[in-house]
């Protein structure tokens, strides 16, 4: 009956794991919760999941935390599942969540949802993943203006590969088209890999991507970056001009792939302060600086009211673009 015992053991393991995830110990006097789990809205291996695990690892390496923070993948409904889960944790000091623009956009486009990010407690924004216009190495387009001019001459001829219609790369592309009067097609792929092969194959001519997604192709010379979409130049790619420098001004509140953390509604102030302290320390470490540089990201720390203002500002610009796409809640 050893087999049964083994099965029982596996079951016991699982049950213990669930029990541990479900309990909710009180925070100690210093505001440091007894444990922390981080909710992300993607499956293991997805963007937000990988980023969160990297942050946790950096926290461990820099001795900011001693134990592990388990990642809780609530991947239903492009952030709606994660937001509903976090709402259910009201008042908890042991659950935080990684927030991205998806958390702002999805509630605008799904007619049936009632959850919204503004019930959550903003902890801190720590990073912006900037976006670049990427073309294959053999592309005739040397600058963003080359591409825009060509796309104006032949409307709906060129193809941009990207994520879901409401993702930031899609919305940035729409903003660029609205601003310049050019028109091109948009090809949706759920995974970055397929977008990259679409460009390598010639099915698509351009993509708007964050450096981390195409770092390997850029380094090996398969892709070229022709412009930075945001207003800020990227420290790791100093030679790539911004769209603004190229004479295309998309305004200051363009949707950006920011990354930060929020707490559930009514998170105790002491816990909030504890987490803010941790992230504030993290972004000052040399390990963080080299992580940001390696990924071609921009370190950008904002907490409390500043983070809240940033979220509100982003929501405004996202909702403008979403309503132009006729996707908004009617």
């Amino acid at each position: 009956m050893r087999a049964i015992r083994i099965t029982t053991f596996a079951l016991a393991l699982a049950v213990t794991a669930f029990a541990a995830a479900g309990c909710n110990p009180k925070a100690s006097a210093s505001g440091k919760p007894a444990s922390t789990s981080v909710v992300v809205h993607t499956a293991p291996g997805g963007g937000s999941d990988v980023f969160t695990r990297q942050v946790i690892k950096l926290m461990q390496q820099t001795k900011l935390i001693s134990g592990n923070w388990p990642v809780n993948n609530q991947s239903a409904g492009a952030s709606i599942g994660a937001m509903s889960y976090l709402n259910g944790k009201s008042g908890s000091s042991t659950t935080i969540a990684a927030i991205t623009p998806t958390w702002l956009v999805t509630p605008m486009t799904l007619h049936t949802t009632t959850v919204k990010f503004d019930t959550f407690q903003p902890i801190a924004e720590i990073l912006v993943e900037p976006y670049m216009m990427i073309v294959p190495a053999n592309s005739p387009f040397k600058t963003a203006n080359d591409f825009v001019t060509a796309a104006k001459a032949q409307p709906d001829h060129y193809v941009q590969a990207g994520g879901s219609l409401t993702a930031v790369d899609s919305l940035d592309g729409k903003a660029l088209q609205a601003n310049t009067g050019a028109k091109w097609k948009y090809l949706t792929f759920s995974d970055v890999g397929s977008r990259i092969t679409a460009l390598l194959r010639g099915d698509a001519q351009v993509m708007i991507a964050s450096p981390v997604d195409v770092a390997s192709e850029l380094k090996s010379g398969k892709f070229r970056a022709i412009a930075v979409v945001g207003a800020q130049a990227i420290p790791s790619y100093p030679a790539v001009p911004t769209l603004k420098a190229e004479g295309i001004d998309l305004g200051d509140s363009l949707p950006a792939e920011f990354r930060g953390f929020v707490g559930p509604p009514n998170m105790p102030a002491s816990a909030l302060a504890y987490y803010q302290g941790l992230f504030a320390k993290l972004v000052k470490t040399p390990q963080w600086a080299s992580f940001v540089a390696a990924n071609g990201d921009i370190s950008q720390y904002a907490d409390g009211a500043d983070f809240k203002a940033l979220l509100t500002d982003q929501e405004k610009s996202l909702s403008t673009l979403v309503s132009q796409l006729n996707l908004g809640q009617s």
Binding site: G45, A215, K222
Partner: peptide
Amino acid sequence: SLGLPGTASTAVMLAALLIYGLQPGPLL
């Protein structure tokens, strides 16, 4: 060779590589 995960399992392996600071792809 391309840094593209084909399956859910390789997506997790990709995550592990990234967390180790390794970028899977032609240069790996």
